[in-house]
């Protein structure tokens, strides 16, 4: 790695920060800043980065490279670092082989061929170099055997609880799961909903939705990329299928299925997002607080 082309190029960086500014993932979390990664890489101080899970947030969109005035291929630098990180046991996801049942639902849902069931032991094996941690595999796994390192199940559940507890008394509790690539871009324009950003709506596990309602949400909104626009190929389509199944179950048990809404909102449709939120809020106002909340 010492003599790689990436390394040579990195010397040209003068820390302007365009990469971080343009990075969709840097918007997602404080922990991920391409500029700092390049800086540490320049000065050979990569040990810290290599241990951080956030390294796997890079979705290889190449926005940084395209916008770098020095034409430094930051994406490939990070890719090299990812390869190195694996040696430290830092991976995007972990498969619990004791739980894995070899059903291959993960393999089917992964658009990158980054997770596959090994024909010899019938256990799922992930390939970190191909994975860009969209999380669809974890959401589909019927055995709960896949643990994402970013947006981990527990993190997501805490985020849901935190969001719900942030609402004041009498306020409508809308929990929004928004795709970082699309719907979230429109979310700044409104304050009526607290949103939980996800790298891809494909990550949204059915358990998260049930958890939100059981924790007292009045409504749950999922904002996904338009059909065909998903950065991770089909995460939004998988999410829609999952949501439709949950809607049916909610309706059967007696929670109005309208409380769960799935919407396609691209990043340029700020107005649509605002309209969706307004419409959803009005619908929920008519429905009143969730029946799960009225009790006890």
């Amino acid at each position: 790695m010492e003599t790689s082309n990436a390394k040579k190029k990195a010397y040209a960086c003068y820390q302007c920060g365009v990469c971080t500014g343009i990075c969709p993932m840097a918007r997602l979390t404080e922990e991920f800043k391409p500029r700092l990664i390049v800086q540490d890489f320049q000065s050979n101080q990569t040990e810290d980065i290599l241990k951080k899970n956030s390294l796997w947030l890079c979705a290889a969109c190449y926005c940084c490279y395209e916008n770098c005035p020095q034409m430094i291929n930051v994406t490939d630098i990070i890719a090299d670092l990812k390869g190195e990180a694996v040696k430290y046991g830092n991976v995007p996801l972990k498969v619990n082989e004791d739980k894995c049942i070899g059903c291959a639902n993960c393999e089917y849902v992964c658009p990158y061929g980054a997770i596959k069931v090994d024909v010899h032991d019938s256990k799922s094996k992930s390939n970190p170099e191909l994975c860009i941690s969209c999380g669809s595999c974890a959401a589909e796994c019927p055995a709960i055997a896949i643990a994402m390192q970013n947006f981990a199940d527990q993190q997501m559940k805490s985020a849901i609880e935190k969001t719900i507890s942030s609402f004041g008394k009498g306020e409508l509790r809308i929990v929004s799961f928004l795709c970082n690539w699309s719907a979230y871009a429109g979310a700044d324009s409104t304050t009526s909903s607290r949103s939980i950003r996800v790298m891809c709506t494909g990550r949204i596990d059915s358990l998260f939705i049930y958890h939100a309602f059981l924790s007292g949400a009045d409504g749950v909104l999922i904002g996904a990329c338009n059909r065909g626009d998903c950065y991770y190929a089909s995460g939004n389509i998988n999410a829609e299928k999952r949501i439709n199944k949950i809607k049916k179950q909610l309706g059967d048990i007696g929670v109005e299925p309208e409380r769960l809404r799935f919407k396609w909102i691209s990043r340029s449709e700020k107005q649509k997002f605002a309209d969706v939120i307004t419409d959803f809020t009005e619908k929920l106002k008519k429905l009143g607080p969730s029946p799960l909340r009225k009790m006890r």
Partner: peptide
């Protein structure tokens, strides 16, 4: 039923 996502741990 687990493999078909109809009766596994998550379900």
């Amino acid at each position: 039923v687990g493999i078909y996502q109809l009766g596994g741990e998550k379900q």
